[in-house]
Simulated assay, not measured.
Amino acid sequence: MAHSGNFDAETVLRARVLLLGSEPLTLGERLGAYRVLAEVSPRAYLPKLVDALFERAVELRDPGLDVVLYGQAADAARRFGAEVPDRKGRLRRALGGYEHALFTAGRRAEGRAVCEESAAAGSYGRLAVVLAEEGCHGEAADLHARHVAPGDADVSVWTLIEWAAALDAAGRHEEALEVFARVVGDAREAAAGDRAPLASLVWKLERYAGMLGAAARPAEEAGARRETLTVLARLAASGEPVSWSNIQATWVTLLALSGRPDEPAATPQAPLPALGVHPVHGWSPDVREGWFASIPAFERRVAALRASDDLPGLIVAQRRLTVRRALRWETAGRRAEESLRPSFDEGVDLAGRAAADPGALVRALTDRSMFLLAVKRYGEAHADLVAAAALRPIVTRT
């Protein structure tokens, strides 16, 4: 919301006196004074105005006002001079708050425009997610490629997973494998030095093996699967060598990514989650809300399919529901195994009935194995993955 800036000398004087007074001021009073003084002394008061606008938005917690308040913060931050400490970082933060408010309000086109502005200011991550949500996976992958230097040791594993997911969705499977190989390599190195849990390595190896299989590289796929079983066998025999409390985000993100072939294609008119990105840390608010709101409809659909003779359709729909429940379970802080395990057990039961499709049972057993690993049932997780491995030669011949 713009302000005219036509403040007379008396108004400016009152604002200065108010801030210099000995009485504590309310946030509203400070905000009013900063609005006035930011017009006449921008160098001193624009940063204070931005901070106060953020503070006001947090205080009110009113989605209807967030667009206004964060929009004003973004406008003020755009006016920062070079002398403002961490000018670029503060601008990116203001733009981030504004685009989040716009997406929450359903104003996606405006939100995307702000993400583009953020990318121009050096923070490209949200734009990459938005592009992927709208089905522009190649553009998202290219955006990552422009910002991640080859061999860059400082790049986040989450960025690499997201980049590989965008490449894979764009049909650029060999490039996706190259990027995800970095994820696996880093995980191996960290696990070998007891700097990361073995569970994280298992989840990444399983995803890598699936990608190798989809790319028709059977020898490498078999090697990755043997390594996965070896690491999981070690966990089953002696437990995790390092302590960990909450790394299920990795498991659930990779689980959702594995389910992308079952989901419809995203478009700018019908955006969908950027699978490969964690929902809390990356998805746009409008997409996240729609994804979780779809759970009741999927529950009704699965219930109807149970009463039908469409077992293949039931298996697919039930897995899509399980993925959604797993994401909700992890993001809502639900850690009780009993609230989620029945979904994976049902998946195994249903797939076991599909004699004509042993691949469905392999996937269901693998899904449950990775979930059991997430709840630290290492022996059971290993048993499921062994059972899945025993079925793979049959799958290969069919």
Rank of each mutant, 00 (worst) to 15 (best):
V155D: 04
R300W: 09
E299I: 05
R61A: 15
A166G: 09
R43G: 14
A297R: 15
P271S: 06
A222E: 12
A199N: 05
V36K: 12
D194L: 14
R377A: 11
A388K: 04
L60K: 11
F103M: 07
S284L: 13
G210N: 09
E55T: 08
G379E: 15
R90M: 00
F180W: 10
Y34Q: 02
W163T: 01
L254Q: 08
A132D: 08
A222I: 02
A360P: 00
E83N: 06
E139F: 02
R78G: 10
D142R: 15
E29D: 14
D8V: 07
P42E: 03
L31Y: 11
H278P: 05
I161P: 02
S22G: 02
R319Q: 13
R368Q: 14
E39R: 05
D286R: 04
E174R: 10
P285L: 14
G96M: 06
A33Q: 08
L131S: 03
D86W: 03
L160I: 00
A119W: 03
E162Y: 05
L305E: 07
G223I: 00
R328M: 11
S245L: 14
M370I: 04
L201N: 01
L229E: 13
L391K: 09
W244M: 03
A113Y: 13
L198R: 13
V386R: 12
H144A: 10
S339G: 09
G210E: 11
P273D: 06
G97A: 04
D367Q: 08
L53H: 06
W251A: 01
V202E: 09
A15Q: 09
G32P: 00
I295K: 00
V157S: 14
F371V: 05
E263M: 08
Y34H: 12
P42F: 03
S41V: 05
A120H: 12
R61W: 04
A141P: 08
A165I: 02
D357V: 12
R172N: 08
L46C: 11
F371D: 05
T253W: 00
L372W: 09
R78I: 06
T228L: 12
R334T: 15
A236R: 06
D66I: 02
R225H: 12
V302S: 05
T104Y: 04
A77D: 01
L257V: 07
V36C: 11
G379A: 15
P273K: 06
D51G: 08
L143C: 03
P47S: 03
R108D: 13
A121S: 07
A120K: 15
